[in-house]
């Protein structure tokens, strides 16, 4: 009864068809079935945030999500967001601020950061810290991450608030 089940999940815009055991969580599915190793299993009990991915547009813990439960749904990972350019500005800011060291938390951190930038365009430093407080980073001490996100928030606001005339200049 606990045999494999056929699933069709749209991962980064591509429909992936795999038969998986019901017990497989979404991160093992992405890594082992799809070969997408960007999302990481850091704790597998929902605390560290390294496995943060998007399901139907909302960030979730991949390790607390069953692959079979996402059958028929849309999953987006760091690889997808990188290829579409959706988070290019966040990635650039993280790079320039050195908001990553070992990089293991980074895919999850960027998923949370992009969610923050979309949800709270006016967030201040304390709100940024609170928003990413479910994503563990042992390396940076968080400040560079906060700096990078703050930079992007400002830039996106300026971009969205800029007049058409100004946009033409560049």
């Amino acid at each position: 009864m606990s045999g494999k089940r056929q699933t069709a999940i749209t991962v980064n815009g591509v429909t992936e068809n795999h038969a998986v055991e019901p017990r497989m969580h979404l991160i093992d599915y992405l890594r082992e079935e799809c070969g997408l190793t960007g999302a990481h299993a850091g704790c597998e009990h929902g605390v560290c945030g390294a496995c943060t991915v998007r399901v139907d547009g909302e960030i979730v813990r991949g390790c607390l999500t069953l692959a079979v439960a996402t059958d028929g749904r849309r999953v987006d990972t760091i690889e997808g967001l990188s290829d579409t350019g959706e988070i290019a500005d966040l990635q650039k800011a993280f790079h320039e601020h050195n908001a990553l060291q070992c990089g293991f938390c980074t895919p999850g951190m960027l998923m949370a950061a992009q969610d923050l930038v979309r949800e709270m365009p006016n967030a201040g430093r304390d709100e940024i810290r609170e928003y990413i407080s479910g994503n563990y980073c042992r390396c940076t001490g968080y400040q560079a991450i906060v700096d990078a996100i703050e930079t992007v928030l400002k830039a996106r606001k300026e971009k969205s608030g800029a007049s058409p005339a100004l946009k033409v200049v560049k």
Binding site: T37, G38, I78, S82, N98, C102, T106
Partner: peptide, 21 residues
């Protein structure tokens, strides 16, 4: 100077040991 090798990590395209096949 930003670290050149950080770019792959920013795209989830690093090669941690568990990423190898």
């Amino acid at each position: 100077i930003p670290r050149a090798n950080a770019k792959r990590l920013l795209q989830g395209r690093g090669a941690y040991t568990d990423d190898l096949r």
